[in-house]
Design a protein around this nucleic acid. Structure first.
Length: 540
DNA sequence: GTTAGGG
DNA sequence: CCCTAAC
């Protein structure tokens, strides 16, 4: 990426430095994501907005497919700025003002941008997934617990580990509050000093094309984003196609800089869509106007995206509140889980207008789980499979009937996919909410009951523990080829065990002696994990 | 109905 | 994976 910025300098923090600095100021975290979206809900809403077929023409018009850049014509910008006041009933307003159908559609689109695509347009079909945001704020959730944890995998190592500054592990985590704090402010100051012409010039150098947008704030936000991604590209080469993707996503997101105040609107959220939302949005670059002619972004290329997950985080900070301009923002609920890698399959979600949005989201989620292991699926059709017919994987092939106990119902061995989903579910819901995990991640898996999930988690804990022990001696399991659960998964299990000690609930209500005995096991698990943390690779 | 835990 | 106690 061309990033020569004349005399402009930008000093990047390492992840560890960022983590330290944000630890010092836990309340004053600044989120790059919140620069663009006031909340995850907006991000989700806008993703859906762009996905609506009825706005296809508008989106197509606004996208420059030569440069993969998205820009709003000035007329749109003016309308968009003005549309802040148009909160509801835009159709009625439009009719009263005698607007044409095209105008009305455009107004609805702009209104959708303004409002993060309000719920009237967002036909969420499953009320189970909807939570009133106020209720969410009243009720402590796992997200609250993990608000400061690493974004990748939802693991709070910085706080959990007293020796976090000394460990030399390969921590590819970037806290929500990092990297874009003081450095971005410095950058912003420099941008603010520049004239619009200068900004345009820098923009051209940075993104490789000119823009007709002369709005200074818009340009500044682009620069900031470009710089952020410069850091990523320094460490991880990003193919040109991916750079285009970044650019487009930036442009999409930057639209929201026109919002200067948080929207007072009843906000609902879909719990299950945390990172999938990002995926949908980022896929816009590939899908918009590219009907049948994708940009040629290979899945492998997508996986070259910044491994720290910063890309996604820039857009989806749930609960982040936007103050004026690029000022500091406070988190209420902060953690977004960033999945490993960014799969490309199932990226045409946005144009699948016939499916319910929940259906699409779940499919997309499943596809991501699949992609974690099925990276070389040439047909890209894995996403069309349901979540429970994907059990062929690295360590369960041919083993489903290994057991011969006729009394057992199915004895279906757990696939990597299922384990990943379980881990993901525990990441999100914590240990003990097996029904919720079942509902959200194993709904179509009739042979996995909540009790099964619980049992599997228990076994995973044991497995992760055994692995640590075997490290020190003979790796008997490996020798016998029994445990072929990826190390990353086991690491992740142990990380989660630190956060959600197994059977916490039970420990509080059993007898003191039994509690002692029981908790000693639990603690040993956790303690073991703690001691081994410096060997963990958190990039899972 | 859900969960923990022993088997 | 089954079973049961506890909730």
């Amino acid at each position: 990426m061309q990033t020569s910025m004349d005399s402009f300098e930008y000093n990047w923090k390492t992840p560890n430095e960022s983590a330290k600095s944000s630890q010092r100021e836990p309340e004053q975290v600044v989120s790059a994501a919140s620069i663009y979206f006031a909340s995850e809900e907006e991000a989700i809403g806008v993703e859906q907005l762009f996905a609506e077929p009825e706005y296809g023409d508008i989106v197509d018009t606004l996208l420059d497919f030569n440069t993969c850049a998205f820009s709003l014509p000035e007329s749109y910008i003016k309308e968009f700025s003005a549309s802040e006041s148009v909160v509801t009933n835009s159709d009625c307003d439009a009719v009263q003002r005698g607007l044409s159908e095209e105008d009305k559609t455009r107004e609805k689109f702009l209104d959708g941008l303004s409002n993060g695509y309000d719920e009237n347009h967002c036909s969420i079909s499953c009320e189970d997934y909807l939570l009133d945001i106020e209720l969410e704020e009243e009720t402590p959730t796992l997200d609250d617990v993990t608000r400061d944890v690493s974004c990748i995998g939802n693991v709070n190592l910085e706080k959990k580990l007293a020796d976090s500054e000394q460990r030399n592990c390969d921590v590819h985590v970037l806290k929500l509050s990092d990297a874009s704090t003081s450095s971005d402010h410095d950058a912003l100051d420099k941008f603010e000093d520049m004239s619009t012409d200068k900004l345009l010039e820098v923009f051209r150098k940075m993104f490789g094309h000119q823009t007709s947008v002369a709005d200074k704030q818009w340009l500044e936000s682009h620069m900031i984003f470009g710089l952020e991604n410069q850091e990523m590209s320094d460490k991880n080469y990003i193919p040109p196609a991916c750079q285009n993707l970044l650019t487009v996503s930036t442009a999409f997101a930057s639209i929201f800089n026109f919002r200067t105040k948080p929207r007072v609107q009843q906000v609902k959220r879909r719990e299950h869509i945390q990172w999938n939302s990002f995926k949908c949005l980022s896929s816009a670059a590939e899908n918009v106007k590219c009907d049948g002619t994708k940009l040629g972004i290979s899945e492998q290329n997508l996986k070259c995206k910044p491994s720290r997950g910063g890309f996604g985080r820039r857009y989806y900070h749930r609960g982040a509140k936007v103050s004026q301009g690029l000022g500091k923002r406070n988190f209420q609920v902060g953690c977004i889980q960033i999945p490993p890698g960014l799969p490309i399959e199932e990226r045409l979600i946005r144009r699948e207008g016939h499916l319910s949005k929940d259906c699409r989201a779940i499919r997309a989620y499943n596809s991501n789980i699949h992609s974690a292991e099925a990276q070389d699926d040439p047909s890209g059709t894995l996403s069309d499979q349901s979540s429970d017919n994907s059990s062929e994987d690295d360590w369960t092939i041919g083993s489903e009937t290994r057991g011969t106990n006729q009394d057992r119902k199915h004895n279906k061995y757990w696939s990597t996919t299922e384990v990943l989903k379980l881990v993901e579910g525990v990441s999100k819901y914590g240990v003990g909410r097996w029904s919720d995990i079942k509902r959200m991640y194993f709904q179509s898996s009739v042979h996995r009951s909540p009790a099964d999930l619980k049992d599997k988690w228990r076994n995973l804990l044991r497995a992760s523990c055994r692995r640590l022990q075997s490290r020190r001696g003979v790796d008997a399991k490996k020798k016998h080829g029994v445990s072929r659960i990826p190390h990353e998964v086991l690491n992740r299990v142990r990380e989660l065990a630190v956060i959600y000690p197994y059977s916490r609930k039970h420990r509080t209500r059993i007898s003191p002696t039994a509690s002692l005995a029981s908790s000693s096991n639990v603690e040993s698990d956790s303690q073991l994990s703690m001691n081994e943390q410096n060997t963990l690779n958190l990039t899972y």
